[in-house]
Design a protein around this nucleic acid. Structure first.
Lengths: 208, 208
DNA sequence: ATAGTTATTAACAATTTTGTCAAACAATTT
DNA sequence: AAATTGTTTGACAAAATTGTTAATAACTAT
């Protein structure tokens, strides 16, 4: 064995588990399959992580952090003026999706549908989200007052942004064949999609 | 036993299975749990449906039909002028979501992620979808030519509509607590959401 | 080198889940 | 009412999956 390929089994298992859980979900994941991907016997998995459940929770902790970062990114830079800030937030959020395309489905299925897990996440993000919402709403109200934009309801707008930014990743395998040649190049499609989402939201809030 | 409660076990199992599969997915579903919900022994399940897989495929057939109907509804009434047709399509599609709120998640998870199932659906809807797309695109091009609307790319527009209409149902459990009092009444929220989605799409295509 | 620690393996145990079967039961037909 | 058919059950078998253990190997520090 050379020094280089001495990545710890513990780490190899973690990486294999991430792939397995993110693509198949908790119920669909198999500990044996994870061990095989990691190139170790499945006893190793239990040696390091005790149970499938505990291994899952290690992955969960990682994803919850990423989700938190993604949400923060979506709030945009508070120093920018509102319209620029929203553009920035949408683009950043979308970029996070591109970087973690498997996360949305995993998140929606594994976390949200399990009350005990969901409350775990909720406690960690709800308060700071409310703050940002209140902040955005007061800025939006002020801008509307000045006649710069339409009067908008921030929670509703955020749902629109999340819908537009997240759905293409949850449904990519569905979109791809139906849209056919439109998605000849994934990179190009994603760039177009990002621009389209920003365009949609801008047209929603700008006065005409 | 009265005559009235003599709903066949076969039917009871099917209904229980639908609930189980739609909420927990194939991997998460348990045949025993289905039997219990149906109020029969789990041997009955095998007597009528042979295997879990075959029972699942009965549910699948139902959902694929519903999905097909939903997609058709989303194409709107071809006799209406384009803008009205789109409004009609969005509203109808949204109403189908309200009527089958568990379908989107099930569909995205269980069908799309399994190539063999997906091709099954794809064969049954792809051709007629392409037709509608071509139809919509030529109408949109004509309307844009006349200066009535912006020049639009139909596949992209459809992705936007699907994103906006489907996501709230996939993510409802996430949206609910974060949005807090906004969703005090589900009925009202859904009506507002439907209107908002139409508004977003209209503003995207109408010239300003 | 040796003692002590950590890592690894193969075989095995426990549990869960799906699937089978023969016997009992109910309904229907002749 | 006897025969036929379809339904239901409980007990059991098979398979799949997770989890354990004892023996062994590899590494580390003295």
């Amino acid at each position: 064995m050379t020094e280089i390929d001495k990545i710890s089994s513990e780490q190899l298992i973690l990486e294999a588990a991430e792939q397995e859980f993110l693509t198949k979900g908790y119920d669909g994941a198999r500990t044996i399959s994870i061990a095989q991907k990691a190139g170790v016997t499945h006893a190793m998995l239990h040696y390091y992580y005790r149970t499938k459940r505990q291994l899952f929770e290690c992955i969960l902790a990682k994803t919850i952090n990423t989700v938190k970062e993604t949400m923060l990114a979506a709030m945009g830079d508070p120093n920018m003026p509102l319209v620029e800030r929203l553009k920035d937030g949408i683009a950043s959020h979308f970029d996070h999706m591109v970087a973690n395309p498997l996360l949305p489905r995993f998140f929606l299925n594994e976390i949200i549908s399990r009350p005990e897990l969901y409350s775990l996440l909720y406690e960690r993000v709800a308060s700071f989200i409310r703050e940002f919402f209140a902040d955005l709403q007061s800025e939006a109200d002020a801008a509307a007052e000045r006649g710069e934009i339409e009067k908008i309801d921030i929670p509703m707008l955020i749902i629109s942004i999340m819908s537009l930014n997240i759905f293409p990743f949850v449904a990519y395998h569905f979109i791809e064949p139906v849209m056919g040649t439109i998605i000849a190049d994934r990179e190009i499609f994603l760039e177009e999609r990002k621009a389209e989402n920003i365009e949609l939201i801008m047209r929603r809030i700008i006065k005409h």
